[in-house]
Nucleic acid binder design. Structure first.
Lengths: 184, 184
DNA sequence: GCGATTCCCTACCATTTGGTAAGTGAGCGT
DNA sequence: ACGCTCACTTACCAAATGGTAGGGAATCGC
C-alpha cells in the first residue's frame, strides 16, 4: 500500500497523514511501527527489492543457461511489471532519493544482476549466445520493460492502452529484439 | 534551473524556497512572475515540451522519409537526452502530476508523435520499411533512450557509467535493434 | 488475578509549505 | 517634477508536515 503510494506520487509527494488515511490507521500508528518516515521508506524499499529478487532470480534459475534463461527471465519481468507496476515505479523513485538509498537497494539486487551478467557472459564464451556487451543487453532490456510499464501517459499519447494484449505484444517485440541481439 | 530541480527531485520534492535560493531570488519573486507554483510547473512543462519538439521535429524533417529519418531522429533524441537529461526527467515526472498535466504536455507533443507514427506507417506501406506496429516501435525506442539516460543508478549497478562513449554504444545498439525491426 | 508489553489513539509541537499584503526603489513617459 | 508601472522585498499567515508525549485498551506470561 505504501509501496503503491510512494511509486505513484513519490516519497516527497506522499504524506504520512494521507498514507494513514488510506490504510485506515493514524499517522502515529505508522510511526510506531517504522519509527520515522525514513524507516518506512527503508522498509518499503527492502520489501520491494526482495520481491523483485525473489521472482526474477527464481525464474532465471528454473531455466537452463543460455537463451532459455534469457527468455524465462524476460517473461517473469514482464509478468511482474504488469502485475505489480509499483515495483517499477519504486525503482524509478530511487533516483531522487539520493545515493545512500540507491546503494541500499542496489546492494540487494547486486547478486542477481551479477548472476545475470555472468550468465550472459558465460553463454557468449560458450558460443551459445552471440558476443556483445552483456551489460548493454541487460540495461536495454530493463529500460524497455520498465519504460513501457511506467510511462502509461506516453503509451496513451501514441494511442496505445496498457492491457494484457499490449503487454504480450511488447513482450514479443522485446524477445525478438533480444533474439536478434543474442542469437544469429 | 527549475526544470532541472523538478526533474531531479520531483515537483513535490522541490519547495519554492529551495528553488529561489538556488536561483538567487526570493520565493516571492518567483511567485510574482508565475503566480503560483502551479503556474511555474505549467511554464516549465510548456518550455520543456517545446524544446523537445523543436529538436526532434527539426531532426526528422531534415532527413528523407524512411530509414534515414528514423536514424536522424534517434540520433537527435540521444543527443538531447545526453545534453539535457532533465527533459527526460520531466517526462517521467509527468506521470505523477495527474492526467491534466499529462494532457497539457501530450497535446504539445501530439503533432510530432502523429507525424512520427505516420512517417513510419508510410514507409511500411511503401515497402521501404518492414511491416509492424509503428506505435510499438516508437514506444520501444522511447523507452530505451529515456530509460538508459534517466536511471543512472541502474547503470551504475551493472557497472556502467553514463558518458559519451556509453551513449554512443547505446545509440549503436538501439539503431541496430531498430534496423533489425524495420529493415530486413 | 496481575503486572508488563504491545499496539494504537488523542493531543500537541516546531518547522516548512504555498501564498498574501503592503511597501520600496528604479526606470520611464509626460 | 510627477505619476505610474515593473520587479522585486520584507513581513506575515494558515495549513500541512514529520515527529513527540502520554494515555488507554487488549493481550500475554506467570
Amino acid at each position: 500500500m505504501a509501496t503503491v503510494a510512494f511509486a505513484d506520487r513519490g516519497v516527497a509527494g506522499t504524506s504520512l497523514d494521507d498514507l494513514a488515511r488510506q490504510v485506515g490507521m493514524t499517522k502515529q500508528a505508522i510511526l510506531y511501527h517504522f519509527g520515522s518516515k525514513d524507516g518506512l521508506v527503508t522498509a518499503v524499499l527492502e520489501q520491494g527489492a526482495g520481491d523483485l529478487v525473489d521472482v526474477l532470480a527464481a525464474a532465471g534459475e528454473t531455466a537452463a543457461a543460455g537463451w532459455d534463461r534469457v527468455e524465462a527471465t524476460v517473461r517473469a519481468a514482464f509478468g511482474l511489471a504488469v502485475r505489480r507496476p509499483e515495483l517499477v515505479g519504486l525503482l524509478r523513485e530511487l533516483g531522487r532519493l539520493g545515493p545512500e538509498r540507491t546503494g541500499q537497494v542496489v546492494s540487494q539486487l547486486q547478486p542477481m544482476i551479477d548472476a545475470a551478467v555472468g550468465s550472459l557472459q558465460e553463454g557468449m564464451d560458450d558460443g551459445r549466445l552471440r558476443r556483445s556487451d552483456p551489460r548493454l543487453v541487460l540495461v536495454s532490456a530493463y529500460a524497455i520493460v520498465t519504460g513501457v510499464v511506467a510511462d502509461t501517459g506516453v503509451l496513451r499519447a501514441v494511442g496505445l492502452e496498457l492491457n494484457l494484449k499490449l503487454a504480450v505484444d511488447l513482450r514479443r517485440a522485446v524477445l525478438a529484439f533480444l533474439r536478434a541481439a543474442l542469437l544469429e
